[in-house]
Amino acid sequence: TFVEFNGKKVEYPTPEAAEKAAKKLAKKLNLKVTKKNGNYKLE
């Protein structure tokens, strides 16, 4: 499962880990999380 932000793509071993990381990053970077095709994107 990938988390995409600032043009970077980071892969996580589980969807749970990706979701957790996405939410944490979104909060830190003041972005919102969108889920697309099972992957997460911060914008």
Rank of each mutant, 00 (worst) to 15 (best):
T1P: 08
T1A: 12
T1I: 13
T1M: 07
F2P: 00
F2D: 02
F2H: 06
V3C: 04
V3P: 00
V3D: 00
E4H: 06
E4Q: 06
E4R: 03
F5D: 00
F5K: 01
F5M: 06
N6T: 03
N6G: 10
G7R: 05
K8Q: 12
K8T: 11
K8V: 13
K8F: 14
K9H: 08
K9Q: 11
K9A: 10
V10Y: 14
E11A: 12
E11T: 13
Y12E: 00
Y12R: 00
Y12N: 00
Y12M: 03
P13F: 07
P13G: 09
P13T: 09
P13H: 09
T14G: 05
T14Y: 05
T14P: 07
P15M: 11
P15T: 09
E16K: 10
E16P: 03
E16W: 11
E16V: 08
A17K: 09
A18K: 00
A18D: 00
E19Y: 15
E19I: 07
E19H: 11
E19V: 06
E19W: 15
K20A: 13
K20Q: 13
K20M: 11
A22M: 04
A22I: 07
A22H: 00
A22F: 02
A22V: 09
K23S: 10
K23I: 14
K23N: 13
K23A: 12
K24E: 15
K24Y: 15
K24G: 10
K24D: 14
K24I: 14
K24F: 15
K24N: 12
A26V: 03
K27F: 10
K27N: 11
K27H: 11
K27Q: 13
K28L: 14
K28T: 10
K28P: 01
K28S: 09
L29Q: 05
N30F: 07
N30I: 04
N30L: 06
N30H: 13
N30Y: 06
L31R: 03
K32E: 06
V33P: 02
T34Q: 07
T34H: 08
T34K: 06
T34D: 05
T34N: 07
K35R: 11
K35Y: 15
K35N: 10
K35T: 10
K36Y: 15
K36D: 14
K36G: 08
G38P: 02
G38M: 04
G38D: 06
N39Y: 12
N39G: 15
Y40D: 02
Y40F: 13
Y40P: 02
K41Q: 14
K41E: 12
L42T: 02
L42N: 01
E43F: 12
E43P: 01
